[in-house]
């Protein structure tokens, strides 16, 4: 899928900015993030721990206590409507119905004391106002859809009777039960082992096509991105530093940070390289964000120009955006 293909936009995030109120003063974890998700598209949100991937998704869902915890500005357009400033009650109606989320910790995202039937039926009863029996039938259908064998019997299980992969499948069934336009998957495979990981990704890919919804897949695993995503946005210290179609990004990574990430993937056949590549230095803390390009202190190519003034995102053509003064060309 490419940007030329005009598909309707499900989610349009414009200059999203999330600032936490902490004891040590305000902390801006997401600073001017903009991106779009189209129908049937999977957008990968990549970056190392603490770069603001999850904060971005939590802000879109408005899960922070806006009075005490964080203030969020910018625009989040869900099918053209700005949901960032609608009243809380209205937001509550959107959650689960037009947008849903699954979490990385599949083992603890189900309530241990309730049967999974109750938990799948819950959004159906809240949003689609179904009766018990109707909701139960729909829940069984959803369980079948996400690949749980003999759903009629499994539906009355308690979460502890299911394996980790099955629990994540149930979570996906719950999230998709009201056919949301947008699914946010926050590292959905981190807690699972590799074979199950592949199954869950296949499932997300399959359901993404079947239900024609937009998906934001948050991950730090570039292999996952390569496997399922259509577009990728790379985040660093609360900003998007590069965004491109997936082939474009892997073939022509332009930002030094993206190149560093790609070089850090161990190659099975690349024995001659010996040592694993690593990006020098560590991620700065959020309350000491460097001036100029945020990556400059760790960048091997940084010049004095990089350390002054903010660096804007520039379009390299074909929807390939990069936040770098001297974008690199060619493959690795």
């Amino acid at each position: 899928m490419s940007a030329q293909n005009p598909k309707s936009t499900v989610l349009d995030v414009r200059s999203l900015r999330t600032t936490f109120h902490t004891d040590r003063g305000p902390l801006t974890a997401v600073d001017g993030v903009s991106f779009q998700v189209h129908r049937g598209e999977i957008l990968g949100l990549v970056g190392e721990s603490g770069c603001g991937k999850s904060v971005t998704s939590m802000s879109i869902m408005r899960l922070y206590d806006e009075k005490y915890t964080a203030s969020i500005s910018g625009e989040v357009l869900l099918e053209g409507r700005n949901i960032l400033h609608i009243p809380y009650r209205q937001m509550q109606r959107e959650r689960g119905k037009s947008m849903a989320m699954i979490f990385q910790d599949a083992l603890s995202s189900l309530n241990p004391v309730l049967r999974i039937s109750e938990q799948i039926m819950e959004p159906l009863r809240i949003h689609r106002h179904m009766g018990r029996e109707e909701a139960r039938q729909e829940a069984i259908r959803m369980l079948g859809l996400v690949g749980i064998p003999s759903p009629q019997e499994r539906i009355d299980c308690y979460p502890h009777e299911l394996s980790g992969g099955q629990r994540q499948r149930v979570m996906i069934a719950i999230a998709l039960s009201c056919q949301p336009k947008l699914l946010i998957a926050d590292e959905p495979t981190t807690a699972l082992d590799v074979t199950i990981q592949a199954q869950i990704l296949d499932l997300i890919l399959e359901l993404n096509e079947k239900m024609d919804m937009g998906v934001i897949l948050i991950t730090h695993d570039l292999a996952v991105v390569a496997q399922v995503c259509h577009r990728v946005a790379v985040m660093y210290l609360g900003q998007i530093v590069e965004e491109a179609d997936v082939e474009d990004l892997f073939d022509h990574p332009s930002h030094p940070y993206t190149r560093g990430l790609l070089q850090s993937i161990p190659h099975l056949d690349g024995g001659h390289r010996g040592e694993l590549h690593q990006i020098e230095g560590t991620v700065p803390l959020l309350h000491q964000i460097p001036e100029g390009c945020r990556f400059a202190p760790r960048c091997p190519l940084a010049t004095d120009r990089c350390r002054q003034g903010t660096v804007p995102l520039q379009d390299l053509g074909g929807g390939h955006m990069v936040r770098c003064l001297c974008p690199q060309e060619g493959g690795l």
């Binding site: 959650r95 849903a100 309730l114 959004p123 809240i126």
Partner: peptide, 20 residues
């Protein structure tokens, strides 16, 4: 996480308190 997940599904305050 499961309470967070319920909030993501649009469950209201009372439902979360009493049912979850």
């Amino acid at each position: 996480t499961y309470v967070e997940a319920m909030r993501c599904l649009g469950a209201g305050k009372h439902r979360i308190l009493w049912r979850h």
